[in-house]
């Protein structure tokens, strides 16, 4: 009764699932998930479950993938607080620094988002209030005639580990800061 082609089509489902599991980039994995959903809808419908196939196509392929793309995009982000542009002679150095940082974060599929603050005090406040994951500013004790030294302070430990091993750029220090949780601050 069961035709031969059904076995072949059903075998496509674990094949695409294996491809899905082997992906490392989250966005590529989501596209493969959509492919898996299309194949699953085919398998369900040839086995007679037309309603299940329709649900898989509508929810599994369209809704879930769309929502997950938005969720991954908004959560895989590193927010770095910087001072807004003032009359600094070190613009070139700074853009190069940011470009290098972006290269490192892209290796981990993170997006780098720059948040500008008008002065140092607000920058510190933003880090303490957990508005940003890290701040990058010129350290105060840099001597003015030589290359400027930039100080990057990170409050997320995993990000600090990644930057410490991967980020090698001259004249930039990376340090880690522990911020007490908000319950402690209220006491």
């Amino acid at each position: 009764m069961i035709d031969n082609y059904i076995y072949v089509i059903v075998a496509l489902l674990p094949l695409s699932a294996l491809i899905l599991v082997s992906q490392t980039n989250p966005y590529n994995a989501l596209v493969i998930r959509a492919i898996l959903g299309a194949i699953a809808a085919l398998v369900y419908s040839i086995l007679g479950g037309a309603d299940v196939a329709l649900t898989e196509a509508l929810v599994g392929t369209m809704l879930a993938v769309t929502l997950y793309v938005i969720a991954v995009r908004s959560s895989l982000v590193m927010r770095l607080g910087i001072l807004s542009k003032n009359s600094d002679s070190t613009e070139d150095y700074f853009t190069e620094l940011i470009a290098n940082l972006r290269k490192v974060t892209q290796k981990y599929y993170l997006r780098l988002e720059l948040v500008e603050y008008p002065d140092r005090e607000l920058l510190k406040q933003a880090l303490l209030k957990r508005e940003v994951h890290g701040i990058c500013e010129r350290s105060e004790l840099s001597n003015m005639d030589n290359n400027p030294i930039y100080q990057t302070t990170i409050r997320v430990h995993r990000l600090f580990e990644i930057l410490q091993t991967e980020f090698t750029f001259p004249d930039t220090e990376i340090s880690y800061i522990t911020i007490p949780s908000s319950e402690d601050k209220h006491k």
């Binding site: 966005y27 596209v31 959509a34 299309a38 809808a41 419908s45 040839i46 007679g48 037309a50 309603d51 196939a53 329709l54 196509a57 509508l58 392929t61 369209m62 993938v65 769309t66 793309v69 938005i70 995009r73 997006r111």
Partner: peptide, 28 residues
């Protein structure tokens, strides 16, 4: 019933693809 579902999946799949293409375009 399978035929009706196939036609619906045909048009829904393409709609989902266009949506996904626009989202991926705006990722960066």
């Amino acid at each position: 019933s399978i035929g009706v579902v196939a036609v619906i999946i045909l048009s829904v799949g393409e709609a989902g693809l266009m949506l996904l293409a626009h989202l991926i375009k705006r990722l960066n």
